[in-house]
């Protein structure tokens, strides 16, 4: 049996515990990341759902955005953002100014599907994934623009909700809330080397 892969979960705020449990279930060794020094030796980083303004501010203050960018550019780190995490990764955030990583060539619109009373769950078709995926959308963002080299993996009502670029994933919904670990498994297998 091979060594377990090392994955971090950004644990500044949000539902990082759910991601951690899913990743451990599919065999990863998981570390909570709150400071730049926690990134050392990681092959992947999951940025959870939560409040994107809170996560963005805390990450910037403690130097995490620079450290994450550096690790990604060094070719060692894959990054996956869900909901608030996807907002943090996007190059452009429509209508709002807030600190963010901006590493992925997409633009997002926050709360694009409405407030909490409009939050919903739905069976979603995802490219290259067998069978529908139960997707939970909570005050979800929408990916309103994707750059060249960004592949759209899923849409809901024609709107982009899952995009992939190199070793970066941005999705508007919460696979960590469903118990379906197929995406966690795929992220680990395809992108995380060690």
């Amino acid at each position: 049996m091979s060594e377990a892969k090392n994955v971090g979960v950004l644990a500044l705020q949000g539902d990082f515990r759910e991601h951690k449990q899913m990743l451990e279930r599919v065999g990863a060794r998981v570390r909570e990341v709150r400071l730049p020094k926690h990134l050392e030796g990681l092959g992947g980083l999951v940025v959870p759902g939560g409040e994107s303004t809170t996560i963005g501010k805390l990450a910037a203050e403690f130097g995490l955005d620079a450290a994450v960018r550096e690790a990604y550019e060094a070719g060692t780190l894959a990054i996956w953002g869900t909901c608030a995490g996807a907002i943090w990764m996007a190059r452009e955030i429509m209508d709002y100014r807030q600190p963010h990583l901006g590493i992925m060539d997409i633009a997002v619109r926050r709360n694009a599907f409405g407030r909490q009373v409009d939050s919903f769950e739905v069976d979603l078709e995802i490219e290259d994934l067998d069978g529908p995926f139960r997707a939970v959308f909570i005050r979800a963002p929408e990916i309103v623009r994707v750059g060249d080299g960004v592949r759209v993996r899923a849409r809901y009502q024609g709107r982009v909700v899952f995009a992939e670029q190199d070793r970066l994933w941005a999705m508007a919904f919460h696979p960590e809330l469903t118990g379906d670990d197929r995406l966690h498994r795929e992220f680990l297998e395809r992108f995380v080397a060690s």
Partner: peptide, 19 residues
């Protein structure tokens, strides 16, 4: 598509954690 499910409600609360 379903709104206001238990998972949508409790899942939203999960997003407040650590906050």
């Amino acid at each position: 598509m379903e709104k206001g499910t238990l998972r949508v409600k409790t899942g939203f609360a999960e997003m407040f954690k650590g906050g």
